[in-house]
Write a protein that binds this DNA or RNA. Sequence first.
DNA 1: TTGAGGCGGGAAATCGTTCTCCCGTAAACT
DNA 2: AGTTTACGGGAGAACGATTTCCCGCCTCAA
Lengths: 351, 351
Amino acid sequence: MTEVTLKEVARAAGCSVATVSRVLGGTRPVGPEIALRVKEAAERLGYRPNQVARALRSRSTGTIGLVLPQITNPFFPSLVREVEHALHAEGRALLLADCDDDPATEAARITALLDRQVDALLVIPVDETHSRDAVTAAAARVPLVLLDRGCGTGTADLVATDNASGMALVLEHLAAVGRRRVCYVGAGGRDTAAVERLAAYRAGAGALDPEAPGRVELGDFSWEWGRAAADRILPFRPDAVVCANDLIAIGVLQRLRQLGVDAPGEIGVTGFDDVPMVGLVDPALTTVRQPVRELAAEAAQLLAGRLNGQRDAPRRSVRLAPELVVRASSAPPRAASARQAASTRPPEEDQ
Amino acid sequence: MTEVTLKEVARAAGCSVATVSRVLGGTRPVGPEIALRVKEAAERLGYRPNQVARALRSRSTGTIGLVLPQITNPFFPSLVREVEHALHAEGRALLLADCDDDPATEAARITALLDRQVDALLVIPVDETHSRDAVTAAAARVPLVLLDRGCGTGTADLVATDNASGMALVLEHLAAVGRRRVCYVGAGGRDTAAVERLAAYRAGAGALDPEAPGRVELGDFSWEWGRAAADRILPFRPDAVVCANDLIAIGVLQRLRQLGVDAPGEIGVTGFDDVPMVGLVDPALTTVRQPVRELAAEAAQLLAGRLNGQRDAPRRSVRLAPELVVRASSAPPRAASARQAASTRPPEEDQ
DNA sequence: TTGAGGCGGGAAATCGTTCTCCCGTAAACT
DNA sequence: AGTTTACGGGAGAACGATTTCCCGCCTCAA
């Protein structure tokens, strides 16, 4: 009554375990009358194959490890959700590991997952440089796809948002609504999200104003930093603040409001990620939406490919284009000329 | 070079696999010189025990399944984080399953995890009634702890916040700041969070105002509903709105501001959960903080107990007391008498 | 009629552990 | 001295599936 095994099904169906395995797995043709008896017996006994035994024999657990910096970072839950759905749709399961933003914990989690014989790993690295050793070591043992963030170059497959083009979209948009005196509130972390967005800002802001690439304040990805940064960028007298993610942008907006600065009338603000909570700030935040579902789907597909023999295909690096979501926080400034305002679509209403 | 097994370590150390297993597992005393040779060989070869084989033999995977309604619900990430840390600290791993708020998916995920031979399950049920069958069936096969939400009575162990006392704290507090004309914006879902909070409101609100228990609007746990509900409760002319969770409260606050209603001057608002984003609304939200870490720790400990033989101990139901966090959104109303205001601690500053 | 080939089915090896026997030898007791 | 423990160690049976052989039978062609 405890656990129905192949052997018991075999006895009930009056045949050998090999035959039962073949019927249930469809591995080899089996005579129709025996096949029926087997299926019936399995059904009647409520047989469920033991995945552990199956894994031991076939050297595949059907399990994928996901290692991420901090599940409490509001960008990750939706990504985790999509990954979970993509994997379960293929009959795989997800082992989740949270690193607390600490590279040492990350390394420990990775080896723990490898010990559990995961078929593959999805890793969102904590730190571009400090994560590298653990990631490359792991990539030598199982297929490994870096997700959302890179980690050195060429160490593993990568599926991430194209941060550079996202930032370019933001800068183009700001130019279109007539903002020139932009500045940047970013994160000083060594993860690629922080690094690439900053680099893209520096590369693109010069087109708006030669001084703009220099007007940069770096902290972390929190709204507390956004609040603090607001005070530090005011001396620049900017007409737009480009933020490295939504949390920072929200903090900036809050502090500006507190200081009585009109946004977007006086200063426009943009974010990055389009996390759910941008829907509740006022003014609604213009931001760059990461293609979360597509990231997850692409990563899952890449993994599936690696697991089906394409183990030694060349490393792939997939960049998915993000989408600019224009909302109220970057509406044309009060002082904008009529020409510019007319040539621009009005920001969409707060959803 | 692919995978170091016990057999290879045994050969390198010049002894049998049984001995190696005993040395590494500490199962039985082994002669000191052989023990040293074994440890050295294992170290040198970089031996890592295959957890799958170990699981098959010892009938324990060291793996725990966590089944939750929606990881994108902002209350869950911190809970998941604490659970993950608690489990990894004991050398276990976490299989995560997201149900999309759908009982059918929930049932499928549960059986998928059981097929994977999880040692135990943590379940945050989607629906008090529709989740019941799957949960009781699963509880018959492995230790199962319901987390944060119940599911019928007596079907499994339970670790949750004491919603009733949390709601009581809110009502007491509102009384203390001199608010009487309260109403409730809740969720009509069949999960216990919704049900218990509503019941506690109905039970306690009568002490403030005989009419209060009747002033109830039910929707779901979203801030969209909070916005909509704000319009529906205004005809009550309340001086306080008690919300079933923080998202609803945030929506209510937003809509009130939009309508030009002064909060907390005219209407006080309270939430429930203390999710991170309450830090960024204005006025800062008075809410009930769930003891997330303690919930996770208690659940992990309960599981550990069940896994160490106390399989048949009587079902436990642990309720942890939440804590009222007083912030600006429930400050005494403008019209409050000096007597009441004086007898009340001023709301703490926005953190 | 007979040998080759296909096909349905079973026996048993295998995956990498853990754990139960069992066997020697040395120490301790009668 | 003889018998019993105690103990260190090995051989091998599980665990529950998959998979490789191999065998008997039936069919078809020579």
